[in-house]
Computed example of a mutant assay.
Amino acid sequence: MPASPPSEQDAPPRPRLRLGIGAAVTLGLVVLSAAVGWGILRGQSTPVDAISLKGGSSTSTPADGGLYVHVLGEVEHPGLYILDADARLVDALAAAGGTREDADLQAVNLARALTDGEQIIVPARGVASDAAAGEAAESAIGADGKVDLNAATQDDLETLPRIGPALAQRILDWREKNGRFRAVDDLLAVPGIGDKLLAGMRDKVRV
């Protein structure tokens, strides 16, 4: 008498079904991870690289013409950042996660162009502004008697030969608009300063 076929209850578990469920779970996790990663990338305000300062050396290097900028003060994530060569101060603050609620944005120029190796300090309202101004004024004239063009105040600039209030203000305006002086010869870009005037004060200024 031929053996009857096994019933459905006696049949062994189907490995294909288990494999299919496992693959589906794995695929779901991959899709979820990709979705989370995409959300983080979309939420990132600027494409910059932050360099960790918590031990160990970083292998991050700036792109061609990139800038190293150190952001401190009233920002969410103070630290060292790599920005594009044409970055403005607002880009540095965005890279640092934005400013805190008590940041004094009137003390900084968000549109100012940045330079490599620059340190940016965002002060708190009514706390650090006066102290920062005092430090700048104190350090504007070095031991050699030369005026630092990047830290000089109106009064400091007026100590230079043939620099009156109007011309001193133009120097400050140029610095505010264009960022730090990189060389003494940059003074030639200030309206009213020519080769002869620059020659008369070249030995009395520095950057």
Rank of each mutant, 00 (worst) to 15 (best):
P62N: 05
Q44P: 11
A143Q: 09
G39V: 11
T99H: 14
E158V: 10
G97M: 02
A183V: 08
G134M: 08
L197S: 07
G37H: 11
T26M: 10
R14W: 13
S52Q: 14
D116V: 03
L167Q: 02
R14E: 15
V69F: 05
R125E: 13
T99Q: 11
A128E: 10
A143V: 10
A133N: 12
D185M: 08
G126K: 03
A24W: 14
D116A: 05
D10P: 11
G79M: 02
L83G: 03
L27R: 05
V69L: 06
V147G: 04
G192Q: 05
A189K: 15
Q154K: 13
G194A: 02
D91A: 01
L83R: 00
R18F: 15
A85W: 01
I51A: 02
K146W: 10
E158I: 10
T153A: 13
N150K: 07
A96P: 00
Y81Q: 00
T46W: 06
I171F: 03
L32V: 14
A136E: 11
L110G: 09
G56V: 00
A168Y: 04
P62T: 01
S58R: 03
G28R: 08
G37N: 11
I163E: 00
A85M: 05
D91M: 02
R14H: 15
A199H: 02
I120R: 02
D84T: 08
A35F: 14
E135Y: 15
S129A: 12
L198G: 01
V36R: 08
A96G: 01
A111C: 12
G97D: 00
V190T: 01
D91Y: 03
D104E: 04
S7E: 04
R180G: 13
V108K: 03
Y68L: 12
N109K: 12
A3W: 06
G142K: 10
P5W: 02
A152W: 00
V122A: 04
D155N: 11
G56F: 01
K177P: 09
L157D: 01
